[in-house]
């Protein structure tokens, strides 16, 4: 494996997709439908990452109530819904996770 080539290639193929839309901003018009779609990106991708990190353990779906990630995620979800506070959500989530690992 040529390490220099690996690093150069990875750098280009990571930076390219990240930079291209930012470089074009203000120079191209985005179609209204595309703009509407892009507003859903944070919700769609973050929800997908939340679901996978919470429920997939070692390549298997673990939805049983003893999964501490699931318990913490539910507690965080309820806290976020009522408080709408990021800090409170993280604090409750971490405490409940610790408790769930300890007791379950």
């Amino acid at each position: 494996m040529n390490e220099a080539l690996l690093i150069a290639g990875m750098t280009l193929l990571t930076f390219g997709p990240r930079y291209l839309p930012l470089a074009l901003a203000g120079r191209v018009r985005i179609a209204p439908l595309l703009e509407q779609a892009l507003r859903f990106v944070p919700i769609a991708v973050l929800s997908a990452i939340i679901a996978q990190t919470t429920l997939v353990r070692d390549g298997q779906i673990d939805a049983n109530p003893g999964n501490p990630y699931l318990v913490a995620a539910l507690a965080a979800g309820v806290t976020a819904y009522w408080s709408r506070q990021l800090f409170a959500t993280v604090a409750v989530g971490l405490v409940v996770y610790g408790a769930a690992r300890w007791f379950l």
């Binding site: 944070p42 973050l46 990630y69 965080a76 506070q85 990021l86 989530g93």
Partner: peptide, 19 residues
């Protein structure tokens, strides 16, 4: 150690209020 749970709950704290 399960530190990635911090990412999960932070993302939840960001997504839920946006719904």
């Amino acid at each position: 150690w399960g530190l990635d749970v911090a990412m999960v709950v932070a993302f939840i704290g960001i997504v839920v209020p946006a719904l």
